[in-house]
Computed example of a mutant assay.
Amino acid sequence: MAAEKIRAEIRTEFGKGAARRIRREDKIPAVVYGHGAEPRHLTLPGHDTMMAIKHGGSNALLDLDIDGEAQLALTKDVQVDPIRRVIEHVDLIAVKRGEKVTVDVEIHVVGEAAAETLVVTENAVVSVEAEATHIPESFEVSVEGAEAGTLVYASELTLPSGVELLSDPELLLVNVTQQQSQEELDAELEAAEEEAGIEHEESDEEAAEGDAAEGDAAAAEGSDDE
């Protein structure tokens, strides 16, 4: 993974008001931790940082220029505004070239499984140890043509050289099951609701249908009596 060069500034203002002013200038408040040093509060350029995180994913590697001082850092936590979808704050971990770090890497499922199957992602990430500058962006799991009953475990991942799996090798990642019909799903839901003691109020439409059925039955009975 190539490090994205980012020019950072030391931040001297704190609090919500200062953070709002920083964001109005299309910049992002950030903190970098690690290596036993005191946390360093930074301001990052908004667009460049957003693009670096977009390219690098959850483990984006940033080559920070902090007022002329170089510092490699991994993204640890990215806070995003849920409405405007803009980055509000970034936590970073200081790293060194050649240093090994523990990270979670996403699983991407690719391909089309066999007809009438359902592909379920049981675990979307695995934990690995890798050099800070060689962290995989993701791992691909192919389900192309997979039949119902196919199970893919963490041990089956192809790991690049120097990357060690830390998750349980028996961690289930993908489960290919037989697709259920709507009737089977409705039956399962009804059985589960019965077991839980859930009762649904009769809708106006169902009540009308019931009244109509009772009326038809009464009319039929009267006809038989004649």
Rank of each mutant, 00 (worst) to 15 (best):
M1Q: 09
K5M: 06
E9A: 12
T12Q: 15
E13P: 08
E13C: 05
G15R: 05
A18H: 07
A19G: 11
A19Y: 13
A19D: 06
R23Y: 07
A30E: 05
V31Q: 03
V31S: 03
L44W: 07
D48A: 13
T49E: 11
I53R: 13
I53V: 12
H55E: 13
G56M: 00
G57N: 04
L61I: 00
L61C: 00
D63W: 00
I66E: 03
A73S: 04
D77N: 15
R85E: 04
R85A: 06
H89P: 05
V90K: 00
V90I: 03
D91W: 08
I93K: 03
V95K: 03
G98N: 11
T102K: 14
V110Y: 12
A115G: 11
N123F: 09
V128H: 08
E129H: 00
T133Q: 11
P136H: 02
F139E: 13
F139D: 05
E140S: 14
E140Q: 14
E144G: 06
T150W: 03
E156Q: 14
L159V: 13
S167M: 08
L173K: 11
V176M: 12
Q180W: 14
G197C: 03
H200I: 03
E201H: 06
S203A: 11
A208K: 08
G210S: 03
A213R: 02
A220C: 01
